[in-house]
Amino acid sequence: MKEHTGANGQFIELTGVTKTYPMGEGHIVALDDVSLALQPGEFSGLVGPSGSGKTTLLNIVGSLDEPTSGRAVVLGEDVAQLDEKRAARLRNLHIGFIFQTFNLLPVYSVFENVEFPLLLLRQPAEQRRRAVADALERVGLGDRAASRPHQLSGGQCQRVAIARAIVKNPQIVLADEPTANLDAENSHKVIRIMQDLNRDLGTTFLFSTHDEKVVGYLRRTITLADGRVASDETGSAET
């Protein structure tokens, strides 16, 4: 098991987090007094309709955004107190992202796409090569390293994105609607891969989704409505 907590011993803890965005002369409230905590190794999901605040919450946990009020602590770091460089470093070292639209860089091969986060970490070439090969094996794409994204199916692209997210062995993977662009078969395949990674590596996964197929795999389901936590349920998931 990896070291899951930051310097202050907290993993992910949101206390009274509110996020508003200016809209015309007023403000739109994306998150309204949200408090929740995530423990290391969780396989959790934020569910709720569009506009309920799922992506905003992921952005705050991912240190891409900061709360308007309240406190968000990720791996012992208060997100609001991080300057841009420290926030980037936190993401670089500890947080992996998976997006709805895969967001692979089309001019690079599968290998190079997965290698990119390691380049930012300035890892030696041989170490990078081994880590990328390992990540691609884990998502079942060891034989597609030289392919370009346009040569892959949607499901394969999302698996590359997963490999890119886990290649640096992060403590947290944030996945924003990871199955929204996939068919049922690929959705199950992708979720199972993430489930395996969660189990084998102890990586914490936090999804935002309204895909019932994903919800079925979650061990904890946090439902958001109008920026508030409507329910927070822990239950048995599909295996």
């Binding site: 841009e84 980037a88 936190l90 993401r91 997006f99």
Partner: peptide
């Protein structure tokens, strides 16, 4: 955006 998310500093 992707590069920011992956932890590359803005600078």
């Amino acid at each position: 955006g992707l590069r920011l998310a992956l932890g590359e500093p803005k600078g």
